[in-house]
Simulated scan of single mutants.
Amino acid sequence: MDSAQLLTSGGLGAIVGLILALSGAGGGILAVPLLIFGLGLTMTEAAPVGLIAVGMAAALGAILGLREGIVRYRAAMLVSTFGIASAPLGLWLAHRLPDTPLMMAFAAVLVYVAQRMFRRARAEQKNGAPLPREMPMPCVINPREGRFQWTLPCAQMMSGTGLLSGVLSGLLGVGGGFVIVPALTRATDLDMRSIIATSLAVIALVSVGTVASASVAGVVRWDIGLPFGVGAIIGLLAGRRIARALSGPHLQQIFAVIALAAALSLLTRGARALLGA
């Protein structure tokens, strides 16, 4: 890799880390389009490289969250255990599906995430406050102990979230934050800072497991992944400072528009490949 590619890889990683710090859910899903359009990787090559950056940045964010005491580590361990178990299935599928349909499937997921985030942010702006959560929640904190009251519905929700995020990590190279954050928001009474920190812990653990499986299979571009990961860490640290000064709903809307543009670009590229085939 020449110096220009090295700088490009680091710069793209910084964008991922910045978004991850601001949303806890978006960096991973934008990593793959950035690698495809910025460095010309295929979908199969981009997926594990994206996870290297997402995993490194998420691990740092989770460590900082642990220091602040806002990571629910038991919940993170449960979700990530199921995620790591299901990630090899996603990897197996990714290397048996053609690149173009896989890219278009990724774009469809990106469209779903973008429109969901935009609608939620718009509703929050209209109400002037975060939307009320549905009751009852399966996972609530015991006020006397400060820990989750573990019930069967709570464990089922956590394990199901882990299984889905793991498959998507292996298949599409995403950290799964866009699954984890909404699940924790809908099913727990945690505040948003704790939800994001716990999500980062899960993303870090699942990403490590998925990248390890991909590395054993010999499909990881470490020459791109390492500078991409370093850039993501720098972006995450910068993003934590920026997040204190910016409005959450506005950030979510900006991210949603960027994600939708990336999805449309991927769909256009996939359609051209199919028509040219």
Rank of each mutant, 00 (worst) to 15 (best):
M1R: 15
S3E: 14
Q5G: 11
L6V: 06
L6C: 13
G10H: 08
A14P: 10
A14G: 12
G27C: 07
A31M: 12
L39S: 15
T42P: 15
A47P: 06
L51H: 14
I52Q: 14
A59K: 13
L60T: 15
R67C: 07
E68W: 11
E68S: 14
R72D: 04
W92L: 15
R96N: 13
L97M: 14
P98V: 07
P98R: 12
P101A: 05
F106R: 10
F106L: 12
A108Y: 09
L110S: 08
V111S: 06
M117H: 09
Q125H: 06
G128T: 05
G128M: 11
P130V: 04
C139T: 06
F148S: 13
Q149M: 15
A155H: 09
S159W: 08
G160V: 07
G160F: 04
L164M: 10
G170I: 01
P182D: 01
I196L: 09
I196A: 03
V202A: 08
A204E: 07
S207W: 04
G209I: 02
S215K: 02
R221P: 00
I224M: 03
F228V: 00
L236R: 05
I242T: 08
L246H: 04
P249I: 02
H250L: 03
A259G: 06
L260D: 06
L264D: 08
S265E: 02
S265R: 13
L266N: 04
R269W: 03
G270H: 08
A273L: 11
L274K: 09
